[in-house]
């Protein structure tokens, strides 16, 4: 899961169908997630320093941390998916032919859709309900629930689109006998 620690690994990731806007959006997801981490570290530090030296804290810091957490976790998913960066056990399939490899890629995308499709739907419904009810958190300011839920839904939705593109691309590779494959090990 730490592929990112391996400097050469990422360039091996395969990118096929690449609408420029989606690529931009996926990268933006990682950037926003990175910024969120800085804010999170800042909120927690300010809260501790404030408590220790000034006897005051950021109000609703627990709720804010939760909101930041869902945002930073969800937004990079599409990017990771585009890189085919989710960890898998490669051991039993190392020996298979290139064609079988494409079939396994198709299976992975289908199984991924079976997980992410329902989750996108469920988090979308939850977002809609939060807006509809006007749900908020208990606390100092009764902060609304919709911002975090939107980010969470967005993370799943972007990943869903990317999974569809990967599936389409893999099917195309299979039909054209692997000829569209570029740069895959």
């Amino acid at each position: 899961m730490e592929q990112l620690d391996l400097p050469n690994e990422r360039s091996q990731g395969h990118r096929g169908v690449d609408p420029a806007f989606l690529v931009w959006l996926e990268n933006a997801g990682v950037v926003v997630s990175s910024i969120t981490i800085v804010i999170l570290a800042g909120v927690i530090t300010t809260s501790v320093v404030g408590r220790t030296f000034f006897g005051s804290m950021i109000p609703d810091d627990l709720v804010i941390s939760g909101e930041l957490m869902v945002t930073l976790v969800a937004l990079p998913w599409a990017y990771i998916t585009a890189e085919r960066g989710h960890i898998a056990v490669e051991l039993f399939t190392n020996w298979v032919s290139d064609r079988a490899r494409i079939k396994l890629d198709i299976l992975a995308a289908v199984v991924g859709l079976a997980m992410i499709g329902p989750l996108t739907w469920a988090t979308g419904i939850a977002l809609w309900q939060a807006i509809d009810y006007g749900s908020y958190f208990d606390g100092e300011f009764f902060l609304p629930e919709w911002p975090g839920r939107s980010m969470f839904f967005l993370g799943f939705f972007m990943m869903l689109i990317r999974l569809f593109l990967i599936l389409a691309e893999d099917i195309a590779r299979l039909i054209y006998n692997g000829k569209t494959e570029k740069g895959r090990k």
Binding site: M1, S34, I37, V73, L75, I80
Partner: peptide, 11 residues
């Protein structure tokens, strides 16, 4: 930061 975001999301 990018690596932290990537790894956290994946975990």
């Amino acid at each position: 930061l990018r690596e932290t975001a990537y790894q956290t999301a994946m975990i």
